[in-house]
Design a protein around this nucleic acid. Sequence first.
DNA 1: ACCGCCGGGTGCC
DNA 2: ACCGCCGGGTGCC
Length: 635
Amino acid sequence: MKIRSKSNSNRTMLTGHESLIRLIGKRRRFLPNRQSLLSDPIQLSSSLVKVENGAEDLSEERNDNLAGTSGSDKVTCPVCGNKVRGEEYMINSHLDACLTRGTKRKLSQQTLLQFNFSPRSKVQACLTKSDDTKSNLTSDVNEVDTEETDSIIYESSSSSDNALLVNIDGSAEISVNDDTVNNGGIVNSPSLVSEIEASENESGDLDDDISGKILATFIVGRKFGEEGELHTETNITFCRDPENTKDPNAIKVLSAESGCNKVLGYIPRELAEHLSKLMDTFGLTFEGRIMSVPEHSHAAVPIQIWCQEKIPYSEIEGEKVKLYKSLCQQVLATVRLSEESPPGMMKYQQNFCLLLQEVLRTTPHVFTHDEKTLLENFLLLSNDSQKLFIRLYTRKGPWFRMSNISYAEILDHQSAVKELSAGGYVCSTETTSELHKDDFERVLNLLNVGELREMLSLIKKKHSQSPRKQDSISALLSSYGDKSRSLLKKMVLEKTGSCIRISPAADLLIWRVERLFFCNGEQDLSAFLLVDLGIVKYPTYNCVITDHIFSNRNDLLSYEEALEVAQIMDESLEENNSSMVLKCIAISDSRISSQTSKNLSSPFPCFSASWIYSKVALSGVSFLESERTMMQLTC
DNA sequence: ACCGCCGGGTGCC
DNA sequence: ACCGCCGGGTGCC
């Protein structure tokens, strides 16, 4: 293998590694195919020769991506702004170093490469995001000049970094078109949109004044107010809470009965965003009443609100009339949107179900019949079951002691487990006759140190009182050999009580659904919460899907397998495990050569297995090069 | 969630 | 262990 650069390639060990990390996203705790991948016999020595050649090709390809950087052309690093020599691994090393600086990764190398270093490449847009279905989001898919795209991308990404994680072999265009606006889309922030909307409002619809209208919404944030009994038909009033640290637009809900002193909760923030301006700027006051009282003390309470006052249009200036009407429209649109959410549903639950429905709607062709059934049936489960499943899915687990599980919003945990278990969504030690070895050890880990010590003391042996939990566990395991293992299992389960986990099948399937929905491995359900809390705001756009990212199930499966190899490579690089790095290179090499032209025909090459494997091989080779250089230096 | 915060588990540095 | 520290769970004004 040729050492490419005398001084620079060894400066960082991360060459190419960063882009691999981006492809992988969050590491999976369990790789379903880890064993089979690694036990697959591959001729290491012979394929390595090929890999060397392959690596040359790959780096050529990468340099092509860096368009126009042949020879000693200089390019401007988009991160630090410095001029960098555009040759060989210099750019990669530089970018890796730049991106690794600090702990926060705001920019992705891939994005940077595409948007800044390939000015001549044709653009093919892709849509990925749809996690904010509250907004009408438009991303047109068409070919545009890259220069133009660059500017759009940069503007948008400053306000919403993740929205444009567009990993296609090209780039993306976000456009806000007039249709969106006229459809009454909710507009959160971009001033561009508000202006258009304000100017095109005279379209004659009657939805521009809320005076006299009854709006249905909810009381939320009840845990922040005074706990107290609520009653249907109670009259309520509203009061601005500009001092609120979490949201300057906050609107308190007060009980009208008890002299307006009791804070019942707040208006949902999306609605308060607009209502507060109506209250502040136009002095509107609202009243309302409680429609029904939910069973859970923290659940949203359905209410109706209205405003009696009329705005005397003749007395205010034209500009203000426009603002007023636009605010009213936004309020009405927000209310309409929230009407779709069934009562008693938690937000995370709504989001999860929406994600499921969306994926079932857009990519049914990648699932087997059984998988589709499992997903569809989830939507039919009871509220309790859905909530419990989602809560557990987002936790680390995989095993949980039932005695440790308790959620305020779930009424009956036991029957939820029963239903989930019957549907194959969770496994329970109650219903599983024989625990697998790995599973047993994970369950054993659920015991705390005290409990473990207690168990150890039952054995006559003078145990060495090591305070370490892992020591106690291995002591226990070795005390009970294979023969008495079932006895140990029984004792442990007696201590833990009933334990449950998400079933491996459901776990894998939901992971796949998330991956399909977000088109990356970085985002998960928490992305919804981020939007709900207003921590990130995405621009308004519509998804126009022109092509399936995965044309069939097999493409998806081999892509997933490639991601597993990528993760193994990532882990191996991290722990400097050269032999495993070699192994991954060999796997990648054999996969690439067995499905050569596939990625060329795909409309979205970076969602192909070959693409992943090329990155795996590239980062592996870079690692080995660095290692070699280091060795030379130390000799 | 890239935050803050809380609260449990853990250990003799 | 009446500490610090680590790491998981959580968040809907």
